[in-house]
């Protein structure tokens, strides 16, 4: 297992370096002076700062040397400086990271738990009205644009009904502490996390349902029935566990979309995470910050992938025992 994790970490490192290289070439491929790109919107930074950038990134040196300098900087956790926000990019990102992790992880758990539950339920009632309702809802969630659901959620639950806060991370100026603060954050979390989770809930529901139905046709399920086992036990012990394997795989593959979805959700709910930061960078044309966020979100995806891979190995003895 340790060897496996080590392998995966090495692979992740290679991918991260590849992303950085991509970032680097994107800066150079962008129309205009790379220094100006790094500084933000052309003309926004003063000449002195741009000169400083040229020095630091060796923009007059050959391309490969520049790449080396850039990669070297990242190794020291230096993602550059945001001229617009007057702060190092890494600091900006790390300040916002916890909020994003809280949001994405909550959404992920909501989606996985409710999604598989609904999938199991639908598969058990295949063809009945409850299956139809669940499947139709899933189809709708699957087809709805995330940002629109977010806006409608704000409109209904925050504006019309006034049940939940639809804006921000906690109540501004309330200065809650301890448990009270946690509760306040949790209240703010409900709408964005549910919104972000909805799409993935639909994905997991559909996958679970299909997978349960597929597994229930396999020979070993017939064996279990021939033993005289009750349907409930067969569902849980034989069908569900086998049906979860592809769902776990899918969950890993979907991690990237979860992070992407966070950009939209955080933008609508003014959730102070890196997704919102990305939107700010976008509106201010702060490309260095934009690329920094892109890099960190890719790193997050790799982490998600690693976790699901480990989970998969825990569930499936065929992989666990062989290695």
């Amino acid at each position: 297992m340790l060897r496996f994790i080590l392998m995966r970490l090495m692979k992740a490192a290679v991918i991260l370096i590849a992303i950085l290289t991509l970032n680097f070439f994107l800066i150079h491929a962008a129309p205009g002076d790379p220094a100006a790109v790094l500084a933000g919107e052309a003309g926004a930074a003063d000449a002195q700062f741009i000169e400083q950038l040229r020095q630091r990134f060796g923009l007059d040196k050959p391309l490969l040397t520049q790449l080396g300098i850039y990669l070297g900087g990242v190794l020291q956790l230096d993602l550059g400086y945001s001229y617009r926000q007057q702060m190092p990019v890494a600091d900006l990102i790390f300040a916002r990271l916890p909020a994003t992790l809280l949001l994405t992880l909550t959404a992920f758990v909501i989606a996985l738990v409710l999604g598989t539950l609904a999938g199991v339920l639908a598969s058990a009632r295949v063809g009945k009205w409850s299956d139809t309702v669940i499947s139709t809802l899933a189809l709708l969630f699957y087809a709805t644009p995330l940002f629109w659901v977010a806006l409608m959620a704000v409109l209904v639950f925050s504006v019309f009904l006034n049940w939940l806060p639809g804006f921000g991370y906690e109540t501004v100026g309330a200065n809650y502490t301890g448990f009270r603060r946690a509760l306040d954050i949790a209240q703010h979390l409900i709408l964005p996390a549910t919104t972000l989770g909805l799409f993935f809930m639909a994905v997991y529901m559909r996958m679970t349902r299909a997978s349960m139905l597929e597994v229930s046709r396999l020979d070993f399920v017939k064996t279990a029935r021939a033993k005289g086992l009750r349907p409930g036990i067969i569902q849980r012990r034989h069908i569900f566990r086998n049906a979860m394997l592809p769902v776990v795989t899918l969950a890993g593959l979907q991690a990237g979309q979860l992070v992407g979805g966070a950009v939209l959700t955080e933008t609508v709910f003014a959730w102070p995470g890196i997704g919102r930061l990305m939107f700010e960078a976008l509106t201010q044309r702060d490309y260095n910050l934009l690329l920094g966020v892109f890099f960190v979100s890719a790193a997050m995806v790799l982490l998600f992938n690693l976790i699901t891979d480990i989970l998969y190995r825990v569930v499936d003895p065929r992989i666990r025992v062989v290695s």
């Binding site: 017939k222 279990a224 034989h238 086998n242």
Partner: peptide, 11 residues
């Protein structure tokens, strides 16, 4: 059954 490969739960 016929297929001993698939007649047992792999997990």
């Amino acid at each position: 059954f016929q297929e001993p490969m698939s007649a047992l739960n792999p997990l």
